[in-house]
Simulated assay, not measured.
Amino acid sequence: MTVCPCCGGKFEGNLLDGCALCGARAVGEPLARPEIELPAYGRGVLVGAIGLLLLLFFTLSTIIALFEQTQLTIGFWPIVSAAETAAWRLKWTVLPFSVVALWGGWLIYASIRRESVRFAGHDLARCGLMASMLVIVMIATFIGLTVPERLRQRALGIYAGVEAQGYTVERALLEYRQRYKTYPTNVKDLQDGLPDRDGSIAAALSNIDPSTYQPRANLANASTAKPGRLRGAALRRASMNNPTDDSVNEKISFTNYEVRLPGADKIPNTDDDWLMRDGVFIKPSKSGPASSGSSAVQTLP
């Protein structure tokens, strides 16, 4: 099958006799293949250039993160910190592209090795593959180095959230006590007994189990004074009452309280609940579950 270079038609025969479709004729025999053919560098240069560009991009991102620091300091740890910042910034862009570049570059490098006569640039392709692999390793390593610190920061954020909720509840309890000279009997009394213009009290009490709020009274400090001597009609009225009822009914004033605050899962009555007792935060103990009413908690330092 011969293809005519003039009209593109395909026919059986020789161009020296003319094209069967357009009549064009070849001016001579086709040129012979050269004895020595130079290999192509295109594939090797492509793989090497992609790897070097990825490495250069990561380096520039590290330099930018270094100059973004509050106080520019050239040293080992500042550079490591800048590289960690760059790794987190590039984790969804450069890292996936580096994986694809490594996979595609390996396929191209394999084709170069199979046809080493036609293609050159083996060293360039190897350098590109090593650069792509180095970028992947560096991003994964620097991200891994920051995981413990980020987990610690996350824990501190959870602690801050629980404490913020607890401080709001404590403020409401103190305002209630200042107004009514006692702590509320239950959570509903706390909500109904105080104005909540900004809704902060309702938000703080929204995920608290009302049954975990326990007010207490120090009965040892209660007044135990007996009434004075009764005379006349008062004595006769007293004699009609139960002779064993010699106490005076008084309204109990709550002086202490205890309430459980939901932990990281925001679900009450779970193992990560915090305990706030008279304004003191007590976080869950790692030694065992902190069920409702249990004492498996430890004071927050």
Rank of each mutant, 00 (worst) to 15 (best):
R89N: 14
G9F: 06
M138L: 04
R150C: 02
S111R: 09
P39H: 07
G51M: 01
G13Q: 12
L95P: 10
P39E: 11
L230D: 08
M138F: 03
R33D: 02
K286C: 00
L31I: 05
T212P: 03
W92D: 05
L72I: 15
L230V: 11
T182F: 00
R25E: 10
A233S: 15
S253K: 14
A20G: 10
L190P: 02
L219D: 08
A233Q: 15
G75P: 06
S111I: 04
D246P: 08
D198T: 03
M276I: 11
D273Q: 04
P284T: 04
D189S: 05
G28Q: 03
A26R: 00
K188M: 14
S98P: 03
G161F: 05
S206C: 01
N186Q: 07
N269D: 14
S291F: 09
A290I: 00
C4S: 02
E35P: 09
P301V: 12
P262V: 00
S292W: 14
P96E: 11
V187P: 04
I79Y: 01
Q71D: 13
P268Q: 04
A155C: 00
P243Y: 00
R260N: 10
L31H: 14
L156I: 01
A202V: 00
E35R: 15
L52R: 13
K286P: 05
P210F: 02
P78G: 15
G75H: 02
A225D: 13
M1A: 06
V147W: 07
P289D: 12
I112L: 15
S61I: 07
G157K: 08
L60F: 12
Y109G: 00
P284L: 05
A32W: 11
I252T: 14
G8P: 13
R171W: 01
V187G: 08
T146V: 06
G13H: 06
C6V: 07
D192Y: 11
V99I: 15
W106D: 11
E84V: 08
Y41C: 07
A202N: 03
L235E: 09
V117D: 14
K286A: 13
T85N: 07
A204Y: 03
I112S: 06
N186M: 10
A120V: 14
L53T: 10
M138A: 02
P243F: 03
M1R: 03
S116Y: 13
S116W: 13
A217R: 05
L56N: 13
L66A: 06
T85R: 06
G166H: 00
E258I: 12
P96H: 15
R118C: 06
L53C: 10
G23K: 02
D272Q: 12
L15A: 04
L129V: 02
A26K: 03
P227M: 14
R33P: 07
L52S: 14
V100S: 06
D123T: 08
I63N: 05
V280K: 09
A238Y: 08
S61F: 08
L174D: 03
L21G: 01
V80R: 01
A125V: 04
N249D: 12
R177C: 13
D278G: 04
